[in-house]
């Protein structure tokens, strides 16, 4: 009953969002597009990093790969094929990163992903300057922003669905275990490296697709635009604010932060990175489990206190 109700409500929300472009102006569509883009990015990031607690700092590397692939290929291939090619390139890079680092301690993965965007940016720049002789490409497509928006909305729905089904499956349990204690997981016979690799690949492909779908929004693309580290940073802070270990956490975090970011970049264009950096540190300090985790903790504690004070205090701290 409850589940059926939730699904109906969700379907209604998505239907309303899908119909929104018919009632909004260009600014409204652009705004929603950015919002849905970040909700998808944060959810895709949390798909892997939430349960495993492997902090990936490479979001913009995959995002940029997607956007750049579209800029290079959009004239020669049909648009659905361009998306497939972008996804495949993202997959290959993700497998390369995953295979070389996910067998090792988590910190190697973090380090590798930390510089990855800069590496790919420099390689693309080098290639463009030396081989093709240009830096920066124009991108003119024959469809409007509402089409970009619908594609993104579909991807967003798919991402949330994947998150939902993984949580309900054996995979979800395996991931939770890896996040809690990898050594124990290994001893229980879980193929930890393979599970992590598969999930990292899935998350990276979605992020690549977000970049690929959003690319036409820029009309002019160059490495410094599509490999902007702020995108990685925002994705991370959104997922953390909401709580990366929960399905709806990234959504809850993305909406207010996107609004804040829009407001900051309009009013304090020079200072927003300082303000967001401080906010980020504050979140790590005050809400280590995200907003959802915070309320869940307090709710549990309140309930435990109310139900017979003689019992032992609630110790069920949520991980993630």
């Amino acid at each position: 009953m409850m589940v059926a109700f939730s699904f109906t409500a969700l379907a209604a929300i998505f239907a309303a969002l899908a119909a929104a472009p018919f009632f909004l102006g260009t600014y409204g569509i652009g705004f929603l597009l950015g919002l849905v883009g970040y909700v998808t990015l944060a959810s895709a990031w949390a798909l892997f990093s939430g349960p495993t607690r492997y902090v990936s700092l490479a979001t913009v590397a995959f995002f940029g790969i997607g956007a750049y692939t579209v800029a290079v290929l959009y004239e020669t291939l049909p648009s659905w094929l361009v998306l497939v090619v972008a996804a495949l390139i993202g997959l290959v890079v993700a497998l390369l990163v995953g295979l070389s680092t996910l067998r090792l301690a988590g910190v190697y993965f973090v380090i590798f992903t930390f510089g990855l965007a800069e590496l790919i940016r420099q390689l693309v720049t080098w290639y463009e300057v030396n081989i093709t002789g240009t830096l920066g490409r124009y991108l003119f497509v024959d469809y409007g922003p509402e089409v970009v928006y619908w594609k993104l909305l579909a991807l967003c729905a798919v991402t949330l669905a994947i998150g939902y089904f993984i949580k309900r499956s054996r995979w979800g349990l395996a991931l939770k275990m890896i996040g809690d204690d990898e050594v124990v997981a290994e001893h229980c016979g879980l193929p930890t490296a393979r599970v992590k690799l598969a999930l990292f690949a899935a998350s990276s492909v979605i992020i690549t697709l977000v970049g690929a779908i959003q690319a036409p929004r820029w009309t002019y693309i160059e490495p410094t635009i599509v490999f902007n580290p702020t995108i990685s940073f925002l994705t991370l802070i959104m997922a953390l604010l909401g709580g990366a270990g929960r399905l709806w956490g990234p959504v809850v975090g993305a909406v207010p932060l996107f609004l804040l970011f829009e407001w900051l970049s309009a009013n304090f264009p020079d200072h927003y990175s300082i303000i967001l950096g401080l906010l980020f540190i504050a979140i790590v300090f005050v809400l280590p489990n995200g907003v959802l985790g915070f309320f869940e903790d307090h709710w549990n504690r309140l309930r435990a206190r109310r139900s017979a004070g003689s019992n032992e205090p609630s110790q069920d701290k949520e991980v993630g």
Binding site: V55, L57, V110, L236, S273, I275, G277, L278, F280, V284
Partner: peptide
Amino acid sequence: VDSILTTFGLLFVIQGVLLV
């Protein structure tokens, strides 16, 4: 994880101050 996240935030603060 906490130190990685905090210093990642600090990175943007320092960079922002230098840019200003």
